[in-house]
Design a protein around this nucleic acid. Structure first.
Lengths: 221, 221
DNA sequence: CTCATACCTTACTCTCTGGTAAGTTTACTT
DNA sequence: AAGTAAACTTACCAGAGAGTAAGGTATGAG
């Protein structure tokens, strides 16, 4: 009725730039993760953010720029989540790794979109995107590798072979975690922590025994 | 010069449909894997296959149809490669799993494009594509799961808990293998079999000990 | 009240690309 | 040699979607 009171369907509120930017990135992460970079349509992102397309270009210059902003923010979030969880856990490396893994699963389960944007994009869209994705993945992997490495050096006495091995294990671990994510979707019955616990059981015990000399070779039993 | 002798630059040979179809799929797998489904351009695929665009549509009806054909062929190839390697290895489940894993790595290393098309595509492009990718992944996972399951039942005496567990392990394993693929690219020095051996060491020993009762729990050392 | 500024929109343009119409050429059969 | 079917092409259309021009409107400062 009134002219001052806004129609409730369309709040049409005007919002400061910093807030709107956040909303746009929120929307963009969702659409990018659902459709993929190329198939994502800027108009849809804008609508989801409650504004019109030119605003997106005013704030982010281009679709590519918007995507880069998404990747940067989500990578930072994930790395922080992981690091903080590990730090909070304190104590032994394996407890810290377990806390980190659990946090990772919680993140991927709760903020599926973020993970998809970070990890399941064809990086071959442009030079800038490839670079940003590489940097993002490097950041996340560095956190995981650090934890794994401390676990290894804890067991083998600071051998420098550890760094190399830790990188391998970290990659395998993150890949496994990512894949298990899919599996969890088809088994919503099993508890969320179950996955991280299972992985820890497999990987950690395996790793410990390997470091203790319990190797497996093709011709062994 | 001659009219009969073809110019060597452009053989322009006419080729039977079945052969041309194979060439088109070859080209398509390459371009799809490099650019992703949406960013891949049919003209480029056609040129790479040595023909013009309408031929692609004559043989495959649509871009979507072409992609489905790619996925179908590569999934079949990978599953066969895996199964045959395992069969050839014979013997104990772990030897078969190791042979399968090695074959998998060889496949991914040698035919990177195929794997990328199968596993790193956003399945949200269309209903048909999502269905085909799901089916393809199901096929591949079934092979791996079968091997893992036989390994588990070999150790625990045919418990039916195994099926559930095997699926988890198989997913984790394939995810790890996929991720390790990236790692291998940055470490071309380490032998190709090294990766599968490392994974076997981690996963198999871990799994064996877990089945033997050696669980890990948050509060344990 | 006015005015400056920051927020926001409608209504385009222009390129890229999936898909097709209409016809041409080769090679095999009879 | 003629006929015919399969292989192949050039040249086009139509829609989608990235990016922009030009201007409208709320809101806080003076």
């Amino acid at each position: 009725m009134g002219r001052v009171t806004r129609v409730k369907d369309k709040p049409k509120r005007r919002v400061p730039r910093s807030v709107r930017e956040r909303e746009i990135v929120d929307a963009a992460v969702h659409v990018f993760s659902q459709r993929g970079y190329r198939a994502a349509v800027v108009d849809e992102i804008a609508e989801l953010a409650g504004i019109s397309k030119p605003m997106v270009y005013l704030y982010f210059t281009s679709k590519e720029g918007l995507f880069v902003a998404c990747v940067r923010r989500e990578a930072r979030r994930l790395a922080e989540t992981f690091r903080e969880a590990a730090q909070r856990a304190g104590g032994s490396p394996e407890l810290r790794l377990w806390a980190g893994l659990s946090a990772f699963f919680a993140f991927v389960a709760e903020r599926r979109d973020s993970w998809v944007v970070l990890h399941r994009q064809a990086p071959e869209q442009s030079e800038a995107i490839a670079a940003e994705l590489a940097e993002a993945r490097r950041t996340v992997m560095a956190e995981v590798t650090a934890l794994v490495a401390s676990g290894i050096s804890d067991s083998d006495g600071g051998d420098h072979l550890g760094e190399f091995e830790a990188e391998f294990v970290a990659h395998a671990l993150v890949g496994a975690a990512d894949a298990v994510t899919d599996w969890m979707e088809r088994h919503p019955d099993s508890p969320p922590d179950g996955a991280s616990l299972r992985l820890m059981n497999m990987v950690w015990i395996g790793m410990r025994d390997v470091l203790a000399g319990g190797t497996w070779a093709p011709q062994a039993p």
